[in-house]
Design a protein around this nucleic acid. Structure first.
Lengths: 230, 230
DNA sequence: ATCCGTTAGATTGTCAGACAATCCTGTTGA
DNA sequence: TCAACAGGATTGTCTGACAATCTAACGGAT
């Protein structure tokens, strides 16, 4: 569990390693939402000093992953349905903007990389493995996000995506997943890719937003169902 | 200059006071863009320890107001033209979303508060004082942002607005300001307010985006002119 | 037995000082 | 002239300490 094995030389600051470790722990559930953690617990687990840990915690708070209650400690944040709705709405907009920027400014190499990523998504859907589908889709979006050449949009988007990360897998693996959704999703991505290839910013933005909205609608349905059912 | 006069009891954490002080210093230019500041300098100026200062600096970095260069220090960030364009694009989207949310969900009291704020903006424009205009417009937007009941959107918007703060005054006070722009701006806000009163989310979003885009276009023109002229 | 005030423990907020690692700069020596 | 080196400046990180605050258990009074 000890990150700081190499105390002497570290290419990346310790604080960032801690940050990455905590973010990872939160996103894959080792630190479950609602759980309260103390600084002492984390310093011992990670083997770093309070100084470093606190700076990392503040960063996580700024990203919305934890909530720091004065004199009480850090609580891993969970999303309310309302917050999820807001985040997905913002995501929709940012995803649309990314697609537009990518379509209008990316070079041929980046666009063909996108085509490759699209093929992978189709293949994953054909195979039917939820985890593979999620990874392929992530790679597809990553091509767009990194290729759009906008650090600010990319950073905001990544923060939003981190916050809804927990829910993304739901939409794919949940049994209630509507049958037509997979095909619709693929069709959306095909349309998006096509719009991007022709450099049509308007259509790219519309397609990206449409896909994001569909995905959001499904996830929110599931969240609401779960909140009501439990 | 010493913030920490009251060392004993502090309603708000020292770190937040420092954060607010630094943010203020940056936004009204006491800490000018491009300037490099050291931790030592700031600790002495503010009278706090490095611990507190560093946590505040990280927060500012997360908000994009400063850039922390390892082993070199903090630099007050300036916007490149590209970044300004991106930020204004994001602002446009968020402002549109705010207007929609406000139009669709705010109660009558909030909406009439908006009408009052609109009157103030009109009066300020009639008086012709740039500073008053800016303040009135800020209050008008504040009514929307606080009334939309979306903490996440509000926070993102406030970060974006802080980052472009420096430039906002430009659009109003610069001599090159196009003559028709003032009237257009008022007309836009009137249309926005009307759309909000009738609860028309679509029109509210469109109006808000239109006004934001116009404001952005003018500011960016000025920035480009200045960058080229100097 | 129930309720309330008090006390003890746990946890964060803040500070001071220290040392290592790194970067920058100016000087020295070939 | 240029390269190596030394020195200072600055951040990165750790440690230990104390105050302020919250939580919960405890005990006393009604």
């Amino acid at each position: 569990m000890d990150i700081a094995v190499k105390r002497k030389p570290s290419a990346t600051p310790l604080r960032e390693q801690v940050l990455a470790a905590l973010r990872g722990d939160i996103m894959d559930g080792r630190l479950a939402p609602g759980r309260r953690v103390t600084e002492r617990e984390l310093t011992e687990r990670l083997g770093v000093s309070r100084t470093v840990l606190r700076e990392s915690l503040r960063q996580l708070a700024a990203e919305g992953l934890v909530s720091l209650v004065p004199n009480k400690g850090a609580v891993i944040r969970d999303l309310t349905v309302t917050e999820a709705r807001e985040l997905y709405r913002i995501r929709e907009m940012l995803e649309g903007l990314s697609a537009r920027l990518f379509a209008e400014s990316a070079d041929t190499a980046a666009k063909s990389a996108l085509e490759v990523a699209l093929q992978a998504v189709c293949a994953a859907y054909a195979a039917g493995d939820p985890k593979a589908i999620l990874e392929a889709k992530n790679r597809y979006y990553a091509v767009i996000h990194e290729g759009m050449e906008s650090a600010i949009v990319e950073e905001m988007l990544s923060i939003v995506l981190d916050r809804v990360w927990r829910w993304r897998a739901l939409g794919l693996s949940h049994p209630k997943r509507s049958v037509g959704r997979s095909e619709e999703s693929v069709a959306n991505l095909v349309a998006l890719t096509e719009a991007i290839r022709t450099g049509d910013g308007d259509r790219a933005e519309a397609a990206a937003r449409h896909e994001a909205r569909s995905a959001a609608a499904e996830v929110i349905l599931l969240i609401e169902g779960r909140a009501a059912g439990t």
